[in-house]
Design a protein around this nucleic acid. Sequence first.
DNA 1: ACGCCACCTTGACGCGGGTCAAGTTCGGGG
DNA 2: CCCCGAACTTGACCCGCGTCAAGGTGGCGT
Lengths: 255, 255
Amino acid sequence: MRSVAAPGPDSQGAHVASDTAPPPRADVRAALRDCRLWRGASDAAIDALSASARVHDVARGSVLVVEGEAADRFAVLVSGKARVYHLGADGRMITFETLEAGDPVAAVAALAGGRYPAHAETVTPATVAWLTREALFDLIAAEPAVARDLLTDLANRVVNFTSVVQTLALDVPARLARYLFQRALAVGSTTPRGLEVDLGMPKSELASALGTVPETLSRAFAKLRDDGLVEVHGRRVTVLDVRGLAALGSGYDDE
Amino acid sequence: MRSVAAPGPDSQGAHVASDTAPPPRADVRAALRDCRLWRGASDAAIDALSASARVHDVARGSVLVVEGEAADRFAVLVSGKARVYHLGADGRMITFETLEAGDPVAAVAALAGGRYPAHAETVTPATVAWLTREALFDLIAAEPAVARDLLTDLANRVVNFTSVVQTLALDVPARLARYLFQRALAVGSTTPRGLEVDLGMPKSELASALGTVPETLSRAFAKLRDDGLVEVHGRRVTVLDVRGLAALGSGYDDE
DNA sequence: ACGCCACCTTGACGCGGGTCAAGTTCGGGG
DNA sequence: CCCCGAACTTGACCCGCGTCAAGGTGGCGT
């Protein structure tokens, strides 16, 4: 079952609605309340954040932050999806992160206070709540418990990043295997033939997330298929050999 | 086989100076005082940390933390140097970080609380002060201002990591150019011929830090030399064309 | 002085994977 | 029912770089 939360690219009906008007929006408040950066914050603090937020409804493909610009604000995704990425000199794109409702955008950069280290743009129509870094600092000052939430989030990010760097040292089939293994654990559904997973994105996008291009990803899928590890049907994949997948993704090379 | 330097339950310690009896060592206290993780901590808090620290003098090549083990403690380097690295399936080593006196070891992992995401070992004889993650949490609880120091350090780490990932997308000459450029700004001394930089480590180690092998690094140096950007004399490098170096390191390709 | 050894350099070769260029499949609209 | 375009696949080709194998080069102890 596909969860199409937002309409396709042909939707020009709903966006660019409330830009200047600041009536407290329930969806904004809910998104801020759910944000993991300040899980321990009081409701009053969330209300204050909501009041200071500047909410924008934007179309698919809108640029949220530009790499290199001064990081004086950040955002929380109220609805829609976004992508954090970097463009190499040759124009190739590396996707760092895919963000969903409730996720913070560029919050680390705002904390660090330098410049945005990457680009961010929406990949669906989205609602975005902008906050200033001062608002974040005020929140920390008002409620020191929030600092703990931020610390755990940042520490986890650092750990994840080391894992990303390690993964980049593997070849593409191994990276794909690792991804499929993790995703199978997260959203896999049991079937008589094996674990079935939905990729949740077009393969071209997955290729970018794995740091490669569609052609090579396609060959990697073919290799996993030939090795009897998976079956591929469009963007649904049936995992036939979970432990074989895990072994390949962990960097073994036995065959 | 290497010696394990982490303090286990049975740490008898050939070179253990003060393990059970804690006569306050001045060097330990100074190192903890200088540690950027808690710059804002009071002297009293530092004294408390020093008292709870388990100090070990270890030989070169001692393993400090092992990737995958439970991250229940961390350390501060009192003297010497250490390396944080990962071993790929084929045994290739990627160096994440090179640590010096006053730097924390595995503190992020201790904060995150899962498992160590990488190995760490000394590259010189070193003195290491071990602390428990509880001690860190106690410090944060006692002095909330410390949380701010931790936040900025962690946020900067995340930003650095995105830069590392971006750099890995460049080819080796570009990575080397970027490294030389940064190092020239940091420790370069002006000479009539150009900026002179000391690499500060053997080239084989630099190769690992740049995510490659000595042979390829050597070719990269040859390319920069042939392009007239630098002159190489052992581990001292004279930068002849700073802006050319910066352009190459930023990912341009004009020549 | 000699030789040893660690470090670096250079050449030859193979493999992974990015790029260019055709197909192929699938879904939606006329 | 057919056409068209987007997404995916497959093949051919080339380049960067890791590996293996020889040489330098310089420091240091006997």
